[in-house]
Design a protein around this nucleic acid. Structure first.
Length: 303
DNA sequence: ATGGTACCCTGAGAGC
DNA sequence: TGCTCTCAGGGTACCA
């Protein structure tokens, strides 16, 4: 599920429940996800206060009072939900005991529960659910953070200041790999995934099959503009974050779902439908590029 | 170096 | 209701 906008949305949804809260208990329901949990995972978390949350690429980062950073990757199917315990009201449990007999489908993939306490009073549980278990968690000392293997090979943030046409054309120069693959390469840009690459390329009217090296800056040649692509990547991510944020209104489901942006897809998962670009007679097609579906308009995306 | 493919794992949806 | 097939937003190991 999660590409950069979803991870950003999840992080923002978790923040109000976690920042400043104390981790009073940790439940870990299996020894591993994609990778084993780090040594003494529970002990190293319990008792810590959460200093702040942030995001790097597709990682949610939780800064802890222990000088360690809880690093969380959601893989394909990871999500969080929050259960707040209302201590004053009694539980409106109409089927007492039902929980013990039937765990919902969802619950069996609850792998980690962080129980958090704010101001010694209100308790909330942040529950990590991940059916496919492609996600993982790690604990990294803050001092080793920059040099840690999770992050050393990561490229720049597409919404950061360093991301511009100069950077992009420089990194793509001479490369014959398809533009689509190059944009998915986390070592160049960190955080883009299949959906937003397809969407950004459509917005920029560029074919996913162009060699990455064909992308040049305006001054060099006007045909395939790096400036335009940079702008469209930034705008599609910003639009998606905006839409994702709106799905968090109730602040209960921090589920990494697509928010409302899925209704705004121009090409992704729209095979066979007409191109939504005004006046374009094209049809959205799907082709496989390095094992993943690419959606594109067969008319308005320049080759 | 670079680019493809298989694979990790479970669930959803289509078609029969 | 069920079976089989394909596919899925991530990343990595391995191969030519």
């Amino acid at each position: 599920m999660p590409e950069l906008p979803e991870v950003e949305t999840v992080m923002r949804g978790l923040s109000p429940f976690m920042e400043g809260a104390k981790i009073v208990a940790v439940t870990q329901n299996r020894p591993d996800l994609r990778f084993p949990f780090p040594e003494n995972f529970i002990q190293r978390l319990t008792g810590c206060t959460v200093v702040s949350l942030s995001r790097r690429a597709k990682f949610v980062l939780v800064d802890l009072s222990s000088e360690e950073v809880l690093v969380m990757h959601l893989g394909m199917s990871g999500s969080f939900r929050i259960v707040s315990e209302n201590t004053s009201a009694k539980r409106p449990d109409k089927h007492p005991g039902a929980f013990h007999h039937e765990r919902s489908k969802d619950e069996k993939h609850d792998h980690v529960v962080l129980s958090l306490e704010v101001a010694g009073r209100q308790l909330s549980h942040v529950i990590y659910n991940d059916p496919r278990r492609f996600g993982y968690m790690d604990l990294v000392p803050r001092s080793e953070f920059a040099s840690h293997r999770h992050f050393t090979h990561l490229g720049i943030e597409p919404l950061g200041n360093a991301f511009d046409a100069h950077y992009l054309s420089d990194r793509f120069k001479g490369r014959r790999t398809p533009l689509k693959s190059a944009l998915l390469d986390q070592r160049i840009i960190a955080g883009l995934g299949n959906i937003y690459v397809c969407e950004a390329l459509w917005r920029a009217r560029l074919s996913p099959f162009l060699p990455a090296g064909a992308l040049v800056r305006k001054n060099d040649k006007p045909k395939h503009s790096a400036e335009r692509l940079v702008g469209e990547i930034q705008s599609v991510l910003a639009d998606a974050i905006k839409a994702g944020g709106s799905s968090l209104r109730d602040h209960v489901q921090t589920d990494g779902s697509m928010g409302y942006f899925q209704h705004s897809f121009s090409v992704y998962d729209r095979e066979g439908q007409p191109c939504p670009r005004s006046g374009c007679p094209g049809i959205i097609e799907r082709e496989i590029q390095s094992g993943r579906s690419t959606f594109f308009c067969n008319r308005c995306q320049k080759r």
